[in-house]
Design a protein around this nucleic acid. Structure first.
Length: 271
DNA sequence: AAAAGCCCCTGGATGC
DNA sequence: TGCATCCAGGGGCTTT
């Protein structure tokens, strides 16, 4: 599911509610991507200070240490005052004085990891090489263009890699490239400064708009209250192969890049 | 160092 | 109805 907008929508939907709670316990279900790295009992008594986001990771700051959560491809979080017994795909419960945070993740590509802090080797390994936050002040146009100059591969691949800019996944990479009028196969280093600037604006625009629509719900995404997102209804190209471009009516094309589907308009997007 | 492939896992859609 | 195949919002790890 989740790219930056879905992770951010999830964060916004429970951060206030879990803040200042005290952890009463944690329950682990089937193994996720990595072990928790801690006896769940050791979380008892910890206080939740805040919930932040870095790329597609959620960071739950505790009064001692932190939890790093990733939703993988199919993860979603729910937060409610009381919960029933875990379902087959519920693999993590964080029980607090203010409610239970529950991770549902059928494919189990997601993760919940404990770190002592941001300098903990575990945290450094997961967060250390990440690119800039696209919605932050540090997403600088000149630096973005300079970073693209160093990459010989297709711009779509660079966006997905997350080491130049974070949070752009398969849906929003296609969407941003459409908005910027750039063919996904264009080599990153060939982009002129004006085109890079336009791409930067498109990334910020599409991600911010997707957050405001509650993210994209293609099959199973929902926020921590169980509410779906609606951005998919206004997608210009993603999942629209063969359908008419909303700008010029040319059929949208589908191609494979690095075993992922890419959608684009051959007329509106220039090489 | 960058780039390309390979996996991890389950479920839904499609085709025979 | 049954079974095989392909595809899916990610990304770390290994190999070139």
């Amino acid at each position: 599911m989740p790219e930056l907008p879905e992770v951010e929508v999830t964060r916004l939907s429970f951060a206030d509610r879990i803040q200042d709670s005290e952890i009463l316990g944690a329950e682990l279900g089937k193994p996720l991507r990595w072990p928790l790295g801690l006896d769940p009992q050791a979380l008892v008594g910890r206080r939740v200070l805040s919930v932040r986001r870095r790329g597609k990771y959620l960071l739950i700051d505790l009064d001692r240490g932190m939890l790093l959560l990733h939703l993988g491809m199919s993860g979603s979080l729910g937060f409610s005052a009381r919960v029933g017994p875990p379902g087959v795909h519920d693999h993590f419960d964080l029980v607090t004085t203010r409610g239970v945070l529950r991770l549902n993740d059928p494919r189990r590509f997601g993760a919940v990891v404990h770190a002592h802090g941001e300098n903990d080797p575990v945290a450094v390994k997961l967060l250390g090489a990440l690119g800039v936050e696209p919605l932050g002040e540090t997403f600088d146009a000149k630096a973005f263009h300079a970073a693209l100059k160093l990459r010989r591969t297709a711009i779509k691949q660079v966006l997905l890699s997350g080491d130049v800019v974070v949070g752009v996944g398969n849906i929003y990479a296609s969407e941003a490239l459409f908005l910027a009028g750039i063919r996904p196969t264009t080599a990153a280093w060939r982009l002129t400064r004006p085109r890079a600037d336009r791409l930067r604006e498109a990334i910020r625009d599409v991600l911010a708009r997707a957050v405001s629509r509650g993210g994209s719900t293609l099959r199973d995404f929902s926020n921590a209250h169980g509410e779906s997102g609606y951005f998919q209804l206004e997608a210009m190209v993603y999942d629209r192969a063969g359908e008419p471009c909303r700008t010029c009516a040319t059929p949208i094309r589908l191609l494979r890049q690095g075993q992922r589907s890419t959608y684009y308009c051959p007329v509106c997007q220039k090489p």
